[in-house]
């Protein structure tokens, strides 16, 4: 996979899933190299002081990360579906639906546990593990600033995001042309590839008192379920129920899965999850982790 080298770093701004199509097209050409930027393992960063001062050369557009020791990293809460990261900045464009038009865009896999910051050069507030429920962690990029990538996180609250210093030493990068759109009112789910619909199915969503949360989220893992038997595979999303703090022993994670019968089809009778037919699940499981799911 092609990546920028340190010598070739050139900061770039612009969006990803939330950006215009034009910007995104230009972005994609460069996105392969996003991860390739400056180096240094996150917990061995050499910077001056703890302020994460901006580098003079880039006029503050590409600040160095705040130093995080291995010990400090260990104490940070993990960004997983089980956690509530109150300090996480909220996705500034939770209602963005550009992924269904252009695809998810860039997704990143941390090759090591990474510190997650409130903003480029800001304070760390969490760490991103390399796995989520046994699946490799892949997160969508929703914004960029220099060597920094703003990513969606799998934790509460809904829309939790954070910034990671994305370098060729710390992340694996992939392109993702797919997106999922859930129309709650129409009880439909569609998969698009580069904006072209490749499948649509009638589904079930959360009942009125436990609605499926709106906004953009993403698929965090692919689980061959070992305990529950209502679906052979469960695709947990980054979003959580706003009405169930916990559910069945879990943290209230919203998931996509099948159901033993068809009573859900075209109905709002789940506790927040998105129930789909086996035919739909067969296609959904092929989508890369990190694929954005827009719930409207």
């Amino acid at each position: 996979m092609e990546r920028r080298s340190d010598a070739d770093r050139s900061g770039f701004a612009g969006g990803n899933a939330g950006a215009s199509a034009e910007t995104r097209a230009a972005y994609r050409k460069r996105s392969r190299s996003l991860a390739a930027v400056a180096s240094a393992a996150v917990f061995a960063l050499v910077v001056t002081g703890c302020g994460g001062g901006d580098t003079a050369a880039d006029g503050g557009q590409n600040p160095e990360p705040v130093a995080v020791t291995e010990e400090q990293l260990a104490k940070l809460p993990e960004a997983t579906t089980y956690d509530d990261l109150e300090q996480a900045p909220i996705d500034p464009e939770m209602g963005d639906t550009s992924a269904s038009e252009n695809g998810t865009g860039t997704v990143l896999h941390p090759e090591q546990e990474l510190a997650v910051y409130k903003k480029p050069g800001g304070e760390p507030f969490a760490k991103l593990p390399v796995e989520q429920i046994s699946s490799p962690t892949w997160v969508p990029v929703i914004g960029e600033k220099g060597d920094w990538a703003q990513i969606l996180l799998p934790a509460r609250p809904n829309g939790a995001s954070g910034w990671i210093h994305a370098t060729d030493k710390t992340v694996e990068e992939g392109n993702n042309d797919f997106a999922v759109t859930v129309h709650r009112d129409d009880f439909t789910l569609e998969i698009t590839e580069k904006g072209e619909q490749i499948g649509e199915w009638t589904i079930g969503v959360g009942k009125d008192e436990h609605p499926t949360p709106k906004g953009r989220a993403y698929i965090i893992a692919s689980i061959e379920e070992q305990v529950n038997d209502y679906s052979p595979i469960v695709l947990p999303m980054s979003s959580h129920s706003e009405s169930h703090e916990t559910f069945g022993g879990g943290p209230g994670t919203v998931g996509i899965h099948t159901w033993p019968d068809n009573s859900f089809v075209g109905e709002a009778n789940s506790d927040g999850c998105i129930r789909v037919t086996q035919e739909a699940l067969d296609e959904l499981v092929k989508l890369p982790l990190g694929t954005i799911v827009e719930v409207v």
Partner: peptide, 20 residues
């Protein structure tokens, strides 16, 4: 993959109680 595309996942044995 070789084209730079994110991989299709392999379902991993595990368990998570989602909101059903």
């Amino acid at each position: 993959d070789d084209n730079g595309d994110a991989p299709a996942p392999t379902p991993q044995p595990g368990h998570l109680d989602v909101t059903g």
